[in-house]
Design a binder for these strands. Structure first.
Length: 95
DNA sequence: GGCGTGATTGTTCGG
DNA sequence: CCGAACAATCACGCC
């Protein structure tokens, strides 16, 4: 099932690990990186109120092929985190 | 062997 | 400064 949105208000940002590898970014993050300047450039009138909403709308508006670069980076970033987590695990184990 | 959980990531915007 | 919608994530630990 979904991560029970009820669990609690997200963005709790609580630390629990010594070196906290901080997982990785998300496709949205990479996509947003390119959209923030694009969408906002095409919608200089819309503010977070709209942009934020619009951003997400068109994010999905793209096709798997469009998200390709975003998903690709997402996976790439994940590997990034994977390395830190690996070390984090090592440090955690061998300590 | 399958499940749920939490933590996190980045943008925009404003008071 | 931080949070809040917007979305994805997905590794982690556990019985």
């Amino acid at each position: 099932m979904a991560p029970t949105k009820d669990t609690k208000k997200r963005t709790q940002r609580r630390k629990k690990d010594p070196n906290a590898p901080k997982r990785a970014l998300s496709a949205y993050m990479f996509f947003a990186n390119e959209n923030r300047d694009i969408v906002r450039s095409e919608n200089p009138d819309v503010t977070f109120g709209q942009i934020g909403r619009i951003l997400g709308e068109r994010w999905k508006a793209l096709n798997a092929e469009d998200k390709e670069p975003y998903e690709a980076k997402a996976a790439a970033d994940k590997k990034r985190y994977e390395s830190e987590k690996e070390l984090y695990m090592a440090t955690h184990a061998t300590e």
